[in-house]
Design a protein around this nucleic acid. Sequence first.
RNA 1: GGUCACGUGGCCGAGAGGCUAGGCAGAGGUCUGCAAAACCUCGUACGGUGGUUCGAAUCCACUCGUGACCUCCA
Length: 495
Amino acid sequence: MQPPLLIYNSLTRQKEVFKPLSPPFVGLYLCGPTVYGKAHLGHARSAIAFDVVVRYLRQLDYKVRFVRNITDVGHLERDLDEGEDKVAKQARLEEVSPMEVAQRYTNSYRKNMEMLNVLPPSIEPCASGHIPEQIEMITSIIQKGLAYLVDGSVYFDVVKYNQVGHTYGLLSGRILSEMRVGTRALSGQEVKKNAADFALWKKATPSHIMRWPSPWGEGFPGWHIECTAIGSKYLGAQFDIHAGGLDLLFPHHECEIAQAQAACATNLATYWMHNNLVTIDGAKMGKSLGNFITLDEFFEGNHPSLDQPYSPMALRFCMLQTHYRSTLSFSLDAVKAAHQGYRKLMNGWYILCKLQQDGAVEEKGGIDDSIYAECAACYSAMNDDFNTAKVLASLYHLLKKINGLYYGTLAYAAISKSALHTLTTTYTTFLIDILGFKEDHQATFADGVEVILTLYKKAKAENGYDQVESIRSALRKMGVAIKDHHSGASWEYLS
RNA sequence: GGUCACGUGGCCGAGAGGCUAGGCAGAGGUCUGCAAAACCUCGUACGGUGGUUCGAAUCCACUCGUGACCUCCA
């Protein structure tokens, strides 16, 4: 009997038992990228963290509808009237059309995600494809009297929202009256009634390319309305999980809740989940700080912080070794360690696949109990707010048993057939299906090594040690180790 | 200034009042023709100062340090 699944809810600031609104269905919305630049390590963290959440929920037999949006319009440089749309700005810099920019970086993002073995969303809507939905929601908020029109732009009235019984700031723990106001000279703020008000719709200036007709004139939607409109369209006015990076908690998610309360009288989602940030040299890795490493740079080794290319799975391991709500301090040493750790787990999986089922005994073996305990620990760890770090620890405990059986330091008599079966399915389920690891290397390479291994075995049998040594060193240069052990010779990846 | 986190062995990191994860790197050993891989063993860490307690890395207070959000950012 496993403990129930607990999820830390940012809204209540505590772990809560996960209860979907309509089991077995689960609706999960994740704030996707604004496609005006290449994805960096921070994007990967969010994607991987919630990829594992989706994978685990599916493992628990939930039917998950996973929606991850693409922001291709409305995300301004600053939340200011004169702030330039991010996508439009990049288009100007690259001298292409905004939709070209959006397409380019959407493609790049999807490619990166595929490399990281992040499962594609069930639905991947873009903001520009949902203008009518957003206009509809804005209209509804205006009708409730919680938004006002100024010169072709529509703003959400935060003060009014509080006056009619809502509480702005529930998610971020902010109290409206105590929020810092007016300490920075933000131009363009004077059109708003209050500094905390945010744009639902912006009037397009004559030069603005991305524009749509609306009841308030030509313009484009504000950033926050997109997620609320899209989320409620595909998952319902109230759905189970809304996820995103911690830096989106305020103001983005706070505004989303306000919009949903105003339009639909819901908090939009029951559980609000936030992944923590990636830091480098003690500071947050962020777009605006310019200290980020893009995923392409990471995979190509093309960055001053990196000495060589690193694999997508090394990064995935890095991410999963840390709990998603803790900051992840990125360093070269950490990546190197992660890659080695990943390699060992994968090599263990191949060995596990080779372990002969018929070697195990029918009766209970000496290590059965510890196998069952570690397998159960994997589930317990995931049920405790997706503690992937703990899962990895358990997998390493299992790995020692796997290696021991294969290399002969543990006798087959130590494990029963049923325990070996549990070991095999659990290890595979967690490593491959839930944590989402896959082989970095090409399968065709492995076929070639198999041929060479045959030559090695022949030379070895004939005591041709010169040839044995030369095959070993040649393969070693290719990142492959040959291993001699009681059950013969085999090979595995070294890096 | 407000709000909130965090500080764990060389590095990355779980944990969270007694049973003191795990990975990487390092040392020793077993195995091996020699290696490699694997396995075994080892380092006894929790910013500082007080306090609560039979007992604290874990709770409390103070303190030092770092960071996040309050402006776009996964």
